[in-house]
Nucleic acid binder design. Structure first.
Lengths: 112, 112
DNA sequence: TTGACATATTCTACAATGTAGTACTATTAT
DNA sequence: ATAATAGTACTACATTGTAGAATATGTCAA
């Protein structure tokens, strides 16, 4: 295995990448925000999402393009994001580090 | 369930807390560093560990005390860290957010 | 048609975290 | 003595996290 440079992922970046992956086609800014807010315990500002997406794009973890809104739903134009291989790798690396550190540990002590 | 303020954890803070938990008695700065380096793919500087531990202590996620080295092993004095309930909660919250976002997703696409 | 509302993005600014590196102290080995 | 090792503290800067305001466009009702 050829090891490479270890571009780490911040915790919020991690969640944003996961949201982009799960949303597929529908991965644009506000949808990412909604996905994170619905699934997690967090409150997310729009600014947080957009600047994070922007940074992830600079790192080539995602790419984006302007989508001319499908007339079917509405006609607004949005910027749609798509995960790139390096983004997937980063997610896997982040999760594998956490797993490696958690393996065998008892979390939840005393939490009912 | 009484929800509370959501103190988030940075990605490195997360790993440091896990290291403190697994090390138990032996959780002092350099040991934390070693534990993370051995188990993950990362390179960790001493500065990174100490300032993170310090910040975690300010947030009351861990507490520390100076241990007068057990003569048995050696006689150096070290600062030993111990996880606090809020620290445990933060780890659980971080992992549960990641799980919630990952649930049902296929990671590893095409990685052999 | 306008104006209220909703959806969407961009930009600015600042706070919180991540990280390297150096300095310092004590102990152990040569 | 002096070098090596183990340990901590501190300084400084880079990267990420986050809020909020500004802007634009589309829809709907009056």
């Amino acid at each position: 295995m050829v090891s490479m440079s270890r571009a780490n992922l911040g915790d919020f970046e991690h969640l944003v990448l996961l949201a982009v992956m799960r949303l597929g086609d529908a991965a644009y800014g506000l949808a990412v925000r909604g996905e994170i807010e619905r699934r997690t315990d967090r409150t997310v500002s729009t600014g947080a999402v957009y600047s994070t997406l922007d940074r992830l794009e600079h790192k080539r973890f995602v790419r984006s393009s302007i989508e001319q809104g499908t007339v079917a739903r509405d006609n607004r134009l949005r910027r749609r994001y798509e995960i790139l291989p390096a983004g997937r790798d980063a997610v896997n690396a982040a999760q594998s580090d956490i797993r490696a550190m958690s393996r065998g540990l008892i979390l939840h002590k005393g939490v009912r």
